[in-house]
């Protein structure tokens, strides 16, 4: 455990001096908090929209006895709250992408692997170092969103719907689990490539399923509900367990294997002679 904390300490000290990473960690939460708040502000400023029968049937069921404008606001917020699930995925992936590849390009990985640290300790340290800032930033943003949304809408009922078990499950559990999956994929990819952006781009594909849900919800194909989130949480736990296992197994301690990935170097240089 002390070695894991040492890795976390090192990662944070190193990674947060990277401007791109810092920008992602700061800018992303601000953007993803502001967007749903704008939706809430627009919704709360609208006149009463009557019985809101134009809304998709799935939403009408969800709205219950809310007024038309409150139901519209809820629908918009529901759609954009999915962004809070993407946030803990995007931030850690950026950090993790620089984590292994960065050490490879600066040749810091070899001395690190010469210490008595185990592969599991190294990967857990790197995973947590990437996961914790993203999850904390997401939870903080969601807290800010909830407070400001309440101040804007002044409707306890709407606030109750926003803070319902579905979103608590989604943002409190499914988001971090998705992030852990993203990190493990990123670490696996980044141990095989020589450019952080490649690792980032490959890992960013993980966001596609979430985007699919986002657009399916916008066009009314599905309405995200608590059952769907609970199912997602269970599935993600299984996926994460598999990815952690695979990640440790696939991680090559053999530095030459990584060296072989380096571009434009001669065979002799590849084996470090």
């Amino acid at each position: 455990m002390p070695k894991i904390w040492t890795i976390i300490d090192k990662e944070w000290a190193e990674v947060f001096k990277n401007r791109l990473v810092l920008f992602t960690v700061i800018f992303m939460p601000i953007l993803f908090t502001a967007l749903p708040l704008i939706m809430v502000a627009i919704g709360s400023s609208q006149a009463d929209m009557g019985d809101a029968t134009d809304l998709p049937a799935s939403y009408l069921e969800m709205c219950g006895d809310l007024t038309g404008s409150a139901c519209f606001t809820l629908m918009m917020v529901n759609q954009f709250l999915l962004l809070f699930m993407m946030m803990p995925l995007i931030i850690p992936v950026t950090i993790a992408a620089y984590s292994i590849v960065g050490e490879k390009t600066t040749r810091c990985l070899e001395p690190l692997l010469a210490t008595p640290i185990t592969t599991a300790e190294l990967l857990i340290g790197k995973s947590l170092a990437a996961l914790i800032p993203g999850v904390l930033a997401t939870w903080l943003s969601f807290g800010v969103f909830a407070v400001v949304a309440y101040m804007l809408v002044q409707s306890p009922e709407l606030l109750r719907r926003i803070l319902d078990p579905m979103w608590i499950t989604a943002i409190g559990l499914v988001g971090p689990l998705l992030a852990l999956a993203g990190i493990n994929v990123t670490l696996m990819v980044s141990s095989r490539v020589s450019d952080p952006r490649t690792a980032e781009q490959v890992s960013a594909l993980l966001i596609l399923p979430l985007l699919g849900i986002f657009f399916a919800q916008i066009i009314g194909v599905i309405a995200v509900n608590v059952q769907l989130m609970q199912l997602a949480a269970v599935v993600m736990v299984a996926i994460d367990a598999g990815l952690v296992y695979l990640g440790v197994r696939a991680f090559q301690r053999e530095v030459t294997e990584w060296a072989n990935q380096r571009m434009g170097e001669s065979a002799n240089e590849q084996i470090g002679e």
Binding site: K10, A13, E14, T106, R107, C108, A114, G272
Partner: peptide, 15 residues
């Protein structure tokens, strides 16, 4: 029980 000085120093430049 071993210490190694690798071909390149491999230090963390930002630290």
């Amino acid at each position: 029980c071993t210490g190694i000085l690798t071909e390149t120093p491999g230090m963390y430049d930002r630290l």
